[in-house]
């Protein structure tokens, strides 16, 4: 018989770093299955929507796809909220490992993914602060700054005395050029893509914490319909997919930073004390929000405490290992 064809769909364009990792994964799966699995990709949202892809995959619109539990407005409250519990996590690999421990320790997290087989957990580069003409060296420098931030950081910036603004990323360049905003919280990968060096002078690596979440999934029913050896290929592919994404994101961050330096931006390295103060403020804001999670079946405070203990107990340079005892 011919190969089994599985459809893969994402809302990102084929040139996005996410999609580069997806392409690596497709190649791996086809090779590792000796051609018995074939993946047919659909890019740029041509098959799956950006927000409802979890639901669409459950109903077989695509076999496998990019999922965004952090953008879903219902049904994934815990998965979405736990991304705020990662202050202090040092690398993308650490973020992914912490998520996996959390998912193991708190079954309600996994229940939000019923009907789906997670094939990849994704972390991200930590955003820094890009500013037009006022350098940011410590959390105190945020006071009075008008910053474009993603929705989830509005509370943090406000708590630090800043003036958070939400606007589409595409409007950041002109808004910064005209002085409508003083800066933006953004991961270094975006530096080059948005040409921000032309309108901003400072990049500060005061990092906003960021968490991991399941980001690629397959319909559980479709997964079960495959013979065991092909199921194994897909399960093994998780490490490949995560590794490739982490590598691609790392390269994108490096490129962005090099672009910023090359275009004369002043790169500011903040002190560990400043970062700690910032993380503490971040955790304060998070703790307030975490209490609202209890009605979704798990204690937000317990999840936050678990993640923070795990991160604090992991020595620098060592991989994150889940504790044996249950919380």
């Amino acid at each position: 018989d011919g190969p089994i064809v599985l459809t893969y769909a994402t809302s990102y364009s084929p040139t996005h770093p996410f999609s580069r990792a997806d392409t690596d994964w497709i190649r791996y799966v086809e090779t590792a299955s000796h051609g018995r699995l074939k993946i047919k990709p659909y890019w740029s949202g041509s098959l799956l929507s950006a927000d409802q892809s979890m639901l669409e995959i459950r109903h077989g619109v695509a076999d496998i796809g990019l999922i965004t539990p952090i953008y879903v407005l219902g049904g994934a409250h815990l998965t979405s909220a736990q991304t705020a519990f990662y202050a202090g996590a040092r690398s993308i690999d650490d973020q992914v490992a912490v998520y996996k421990c959390l998912a193991q320790a708190f079954p309600p997290l996994q229940r939000e993914l019923d009907g789906l087989r997670v094939l990849m957990v994704q972390g991200g580069n930590l955003p820094g602060v890009i500013t037009r003409d006022r350098p940011v060296r410590s959390p105190a420098d945020i006071r009075g700054l008008r910053l474009r931030v993603p929705e989830e950081n509005v509370g943090l910036v406000r708590a630090l005395g800043g003036d958070p603004v939400s606007m589409p990323m595409s409007e950041v360049y002109p808004a910064m050029a005209k002085g409508v905003i003083d800066g933006v919280l953004v991961a270094p990968d975006a530096l080059g893509a948005l040409h921000l060096a032309e309108v901003a002078h400072y990049y500060s690596d005061l990092h906003t914490p960021r968490g991991a979440y399941p980001a690629r999934a397959m319909s559980e029913a479709r997964f079960r319909s495959l013979p065991p050896d092909l199921q194994k290929v897909l399960l093994d592919s998780e490490a490949v997919w995560e590794g490739s994404l982490s590598k691609n994101l790392g390269a994108a961050a490096k490129k962005g930073l090099a672009y910023g330096k090359g275009h004369g931006m002043t790169m500011i390295a903040v002190s560990p004390e400043a970062q700690q103060a910032f993380d503490a403020a971040y955790i304060d804001v998070t703790r307030r929000d975490a209490s609202r999670l209890d009605r979704y079946g798990a204690s937000g405070a317990a999840m936050l405490a678990y993640a923070q203990t795990l991160i604090a107990n992991t020595p620098a340079g060592q991989p994150v290992a889940c504790p044996k005892e249950q919380p």
């Binding site: 639901l55 669409e56 109903h59 077989g60």
Partner: peptide
């Protein structure tokens, strides 16, 4: 091409979006 279930769900998603 896919399935009646997928067609129904996709049109529902598109409509509300």
């Amino acid at each position: 091409l896919i399935s009646p279930e997928a067609a129904l769900i996709k049109s529902g998603v598109v409509a509300f979006e």
